[in-house]
């Protein structure tokens, strides 16, 4: 196992170096590029920690959506760069910040070194009840059966963030369309790419979503891939975001959490507890929730990257 440990040590050093550089570099754009690479390194770490579900989420979120979001922001804020740089805090602040950060790191490191042994785990409990959920992947079982309340609240948090983003629109654009910076050339290489990739990407996204019941994968990962494909088509100038006042858009956004809540509260009648599933119906109900949540998540994640509405729809 020495080779494996050597890989781990190399990976840990690389990730620290990348994080350090991302923080230290002067140019914000360069820092964002560093952060994208950092996301990729994190994916590798999750694979090394034997958590493919988390690795999939990080691969889709960290490299794809967060990268696009930050790069878009950095590009628009580029002109402010020089002005803000003069605000760099003085030596005293920096020293105090360094001392504070070092203290936090040291305290956490002590905690890590003194973690209880043997480690407490819920894995046996999760495995014991896995059969009754009809789901093969324990992480999916936690997300949608054992701790489904968390997942519902998470979907609502994503929606709340989206409403927050929308509420930042100028009054005159309220109900309008969000917009990405697009290449105007609809015959260029990017448009070609955006015509070829999404059909295959949609298959991969649905596949990742579908296998989530029994293998690593699931709706968050699948939804992120689908959202990225939609953004790619829009970014290439082949399509436009719908106005956020569209009824179908709003219905789809709310449908996921609504179906989740209805099924959750129906549990009081059918199974005697909130978010309990009647025996034998767990798998179809979980599937129903996942299918309802899927469009909600795809739309919400893509629209979060798109930002606040910036123009009214053409008449």
């Amino acid at each position: 196992m020495t080779l494996a440990l050597a890989v781990d040590i190399g990976l840990a050093m690389l990730i620290l170096a990348m994080a350090g550089w991302t923080i230290a570099v002067r140019d914000t754009f360069a820092s964002v590029i560093g952060f994208v690479t950092y996301g990729l390194l994190l994916t590798l770490v999750w694979v090394r920690l034997a958590m493919p579900d988390v690795a999939l989420t990080e691969a889709a979120m960290g490299g794809g959506l967060t990268g696009a979001l930050l790069i878009g922001g950095a590009a628009r804020l580029r002109r402010t760069e020089a002005a803000v740089r003069t605000e760099r805090p003085g030596m005293l602040t920096r020293t105090l910040a360094a001392v504070l950060s070092a203290t936090v790191t040291a305290a956490l490191a002590i905690c890590v070194l003194n973690l209880p042994d043997p480690a407490p785990t819920l894995a046996p409990d999760a495995a014991a009840k896995l059969g009754s959920t009809g789901v093969g992947n324990p992480v999916t079982a936690v997300l949608l059966a054992y701790r489904s309340m968390d997942t519902l609240l998470e979907a609502i948090v994503v929606l709340l963030a989206l409403f927050g983003v929308w509420s930042l629109a100028h009054d005159r654009f309220w109900g309008g369309c969000p917009q990405l910076r697009t290449h105007a050339d609809s015959e260029g290489i990017l448009a070609y790419f955006a015509r070829i990739l999404p059909p295959i990407g949609i298959i991969v996204g649905v596949y990742i979503f579908w296998i989530g019941a029994d293998f690593p994968g699931g709706k968050f990962q699948g939804a992120t891939i689908l959202a990225a494909m939609w953004l790619l088509v829009i970014g290439a100038g082949l399509a436009y975001f719908p106005p956020i006042s569209q009824a179908w858009l709003r219905i789809l956004l709310v449908a996921g959490p609504l179906v989740f809540m209805v099924i959750g509260f129906a549990g009081i009648v059918t199974a005697g507890a909130v978010f309990a599933y009647p025996i034998g119906f767990a798998k179809p109900l979980i599937l129903a929730i996942e299918i309802a949540l899927m469009p909600t998540l795809v739309l919400a994640l893509a629209l979060l990257v798109a930002g606040a509405p910036q123009r009214m729809p053409p008449q």
Partner: peptide, 17 residues
């Protein structure tokens, strides 16, 4: 299992949030 599934599920939730 490669790890405790409960924190793993929370991690996925956390990354999305």
């Amino acid at each position: 299992m490669g790890g405790d599934p409960v924190p793993q599920a929370l991690l996925i939730t956390g990354i999305v949030v």
